[in-house]
């Protein structure tokens, strides 16, 4: 137990508890309007999606454009289960979450085994293609309710459940990253040839990252479905995958805390800037381009390092979990 209670973990646990207490206070006191309360679940769902996508994009260094596809598969699997199984909620819902995650993970294996032989642009396009295929098939199936959507899903998701699941996701992904398997995944990102030369099984570790990311995307889908009460195939299109990608990129690739903060901002943004809602897509586009150019620019890297060393004082040089600068 001593190892679990180091300084860093205690800070994390305390801050998670404080955030939860703060949310509960804001909700129960009525400071948070109903409208903003309704955004708490979507924020949590986006955090799960972003943290899991960060595993493939940020830590493994492979761009996948089909995250919404995994979310959709998980959502339909989990929601169909609760629609058809008539069990008490406290039994039904955890099972639905597991089913959603597992079905998405199975799709992760089915898609990952062939697709991960490809790299870079081809992998991105193939995952995009798979996402679109899933969407077409879901639209044409009867059991999923087709284009009209799957209706009558119980609205079980509330902010407490989503908070707990998001927390579990964050802990799991961060545990993975700090284990030997996570180091192997990061080594593939940094230099695949060197990684092979020290005996890392590339295919296995790529698939591992891909499947775990798919699992959590599926879980997020189940939460999403049980929040809205209806699932439509058009929700899980290419644009949803891009939105999650924008969150990951804005928060910093390979930065879990960044993903959490950025998921919160991006989910609130259209609501806070009501008048700017027409400009949402434009803002996403500019964010993507600007972040990529800035992260590549050596001057900006220097600037960031200066800020970081000022903030951190003594432990300046190159330490920490900061953003990944990916080089060619």
């Amino acid at each position: 137990m001593k190892k679990l209670l180091n300084k860093k973990n205690i800070i994390s646990i305390v801050s998670a508890a404080l955030i939860y207490i703060l949310i509960t206070y804001l909700v129960s006191s009525g400071i948070l309007s109903r409208h903003y309360q309704s955004l708490l679940v979507p924020i949590g769902v986006n955090i799960i999606l972003a943290v899991s996508l960060n595993l493939t994009v940020g830590f493994l260094g492979e761009l996948t454009l089909g995250h919404a596809g995994f979310m959709s598969v998980g959502a339909y699997a989990g929601c169909l289960f609760t629609v058809y199984a008539n069990l008490p909620v406290y039994i039904e819902f955890p099972i639905a979450l597991m089913i959603g995650g597992l079905v998405a993970a199975i799709f992760g294996v089915i898609i990952g085994v062939p697709a991960l032989r490809l790299k870079g642009d081809y992998l991105a396009i193939v995952t995009l293609a798979f996402g679109e295929i899933i969407r077409s098939v879901v639209t044409n199936l009867e059991i999923t309710g087709g284009a009209g959507g799957l209706k009558g899903i119980e609205k079980t998701s509330n902010y407490t459940i989503v908070f707990v699941i998001a927390l579990i996701t964050i802990v799991m992904i961060s545990n993975l990253v700090h284990s030997r398997h996570g180091r192997a995944i990061c080594s593939i990102r940094d230099n695949i040839i060197a990684s092979e030369s020290v005996g890392i099984n590339i295919v296995y570790h790529k698939l591992l990252a891909f499947v775990i990311a798919a699992f959590f995307a599926g879980v997020a889908g189940v939460l999403y479905g049980h929040n809205l009460g209806i699932l439509k195939p058009s929700t899980f299109d290419f644009n949803k995958s891009i939105e999650i990608l924008v969150i990951v990129v804005l928060g910093g690739m390979g930065n879990i805390l960044g993903s959490i903060i950025s998921a919160t901002i991006i989910t609130l943004l259209p609501e806070v800037l009501r008048g700017l809602s027409d400009y949402r897509m434009l803002i996403y586009a500019v964010v993507l381009i600007a972040m990529m150019i800035l992260n590549t620019s050596p001057k900006f890297a220097e600037f960031k390092e200066n800020i970081a060393s000022k903030l951190k004082g003594k432990r300046s040089k190159g330490k920490g979990d900061g953003n990944v600068t990916i080089r060619g």
Binding site: E62, V249, L282, A285, V286, I289, M292, G328
Partner: peptide, 22 residues
């Protein structure tokens, strides 16, 4: 981005596509 990784270039290109559409 001439010397950046393919990942960076690809994300930028998606950004440009989004930009033109919006």
């Amino acid at each position: 981005l001439r010397n950046a990784s393919p990942l960076t270039v690809l994300i930028t290109a998606i950004g440009v596509s989004y930009f033109l559409q919006s």
